[in-house]
C-alpha cells in the first residue's frame, strides 16, 4: 500500500495505559493516515477497546504520545475538548441522548460547540439523515427506533461535527444479527467516501472487505499488523493464528 503521499492524521507513539498495577497497553506505536481504514482485532481483554478509547482520551493514557492536529493530545495540559470535536466516536451501546429527538441529538454539538446557526445545523443533519435513510425519523425519540437505526443515528451524530477521523468501538456488537448489515453498509459507504476510520470489531468479513490496515492486538501490544490479506491469509504469529482459528 502506498502511504508516501498521504499525510498522517494520528501518530501514536509508545502508548501505555495502566489501571493501577494492571498494564493494559504496554507500548503501542502506529500511524493512521488520512483516508485510511484501520481495523483493530483481538481477543476480549487484549486492550483493543482501551487503545481506541485512548485515541480521544476517554481513557487518559499513562504514557507515550498521540499526535493529532499537530499537538500531543496525551498531554494532560492541553484542552482535549477542542480536539475531540474533530474525532467522532461511535459506541457499542449507541449512547444516543434519550431526552432529545434524532435531529436534536445531531445538532446539539454543532450549535453549542461550533456556534452553527440552528437552521444550518438542521440542513446539515437532514442531509446526513438522508444518506443513512432515516430522514423520516428526524423528529423521533431514540426509544422509538430499532437498534440498527439508533446506531446509524449515532454515526451521523458524530459526522455532524465534520470530524477528521471516526472511531468505532465495536459498533455492531450490541445489535440483533439482522441489523448488523445496515450499520456495516453505512460504515462501508463512509470508508468509500474517504473518511479516516479506526474500527474495533469482531466482524472479520467486514474487516477483510473494508480495511486498508489490520492491527492485531494481544496482551497490550501490536502482535501483528498488515493488509487484510497478510493478516487473515498469511498470519505469522502463533497468537494470531490461534485467534483466527477461533473466530473464522
Amino acid at each position: 500500500m502506498n502511504t508516501e503521499n498521504q499525510d498522517i492524521v494520528i501518530k501514536v507513539e509508545n502508548l501505555e495505559k495502566h489501571f493501577g498495577d494492571h498494564k493494559v497497553l504496554k507500548g503501542i506505536s502506529t500511524d493512521i493516515d488520512r483516508g485510511e481504514v484501520v481495523v483493530i482485532i483481538g481477543a476480549s481483554g487484549s486492550g483493543k477497546s482501551t487503545f481506541l478509547r485512548c485515541l480521544n482520551c476517554l481513557e487518559d493514557p499513562t504514557g507515550g504520545s498521540i499526535i493529532f492536529d499537530g499537538v500531543d493530545i496525551a498531554d494532560v495540559s492541553i484542552d482535549i475538548n477542542i480536539h475531540r470535536q474533530k474525532m467522532g466516536m461511535v459506541f457499542q451501546q449507541f449512547n444516543l441522548f434519550p431526552h432529545k429527538t434524532v435531529i436534536e441529538n445531531m445538532t446539539m454539538a454543532p450549535i453549542k460547540l461550533k456556534g452553527m446557526k440552528k437552521e444550518d445545523a438542521n440542513v446539515l443533519a437532514m442531509k446526513l439523515l438522508e444518506r443513512v435513510g432515516l430522514a423520516d425519523r428526524a423528529d423521533s425519540y431514540p426509544s422509538q427506533l430499532s437498534g440498527g437505526q439508533q446506531q446509524r443515528v449515532a454515526i451521523v451524530r458524530a459526522l455532524a461535527m465534520e470530524p477528521d477521523v471516526m472511531l468505532f468501538d465495536e459498533p455492531t456488537s450490541a445489535l440483533d444479527p439482522e441489523m448488523v448489515g445496515e450499520v456495516l453498509d453505512v460504515m462501508k459507504t463512509l470508508a468509500d467516501d474517504g473518511m479516516t476510520m479506526v474500527i474495533v470489531t469482531h466482524e472479520m468479513g467486514f474487516a477483510r472487505e473494508v480495511a486498508d490496515d489490520v492491527i492485531f492486538i494481544a496482551d497490550g501490544i501490536i502482535e501483528e499488523e498488515g493488509t487484510p490479506e497478510e493478516v487473515f491469509d498469511h498470519p505469522k504469529s502463533e497468537k494470531l493464528q490461534s485467534f483466527l482459528s477461533k473466530v473464522l
Binding site: 480521544n56 476517554l58 475538548n81 477542542i82 475531540r84 470535536q85 474525532m87 467522532g88 466516536m89 459506541f91 451501546q93 449512547n95 444516543l96 441522548f97 434519550p98 431526552h99 446539539m108 454539538a109 453549542k112 460547540l113 449515532a154 451524530r157 458524530a158 461535527m161 472511531l167
Partner: peptide, 27 residues
Amino acid sequence: IPKGQTEAGRSLGFNYIQTMWYIVIPQ
C-alpha cells in the same frame, strides 16, 4: 444516568460541565 451518556457527550467535544448541563442533568 449510564456512563455512556457522559462519554458520548465528552466524545463530541463537550467539557465536563457542558456534558452535565446539556445531557446528564436534564435526564
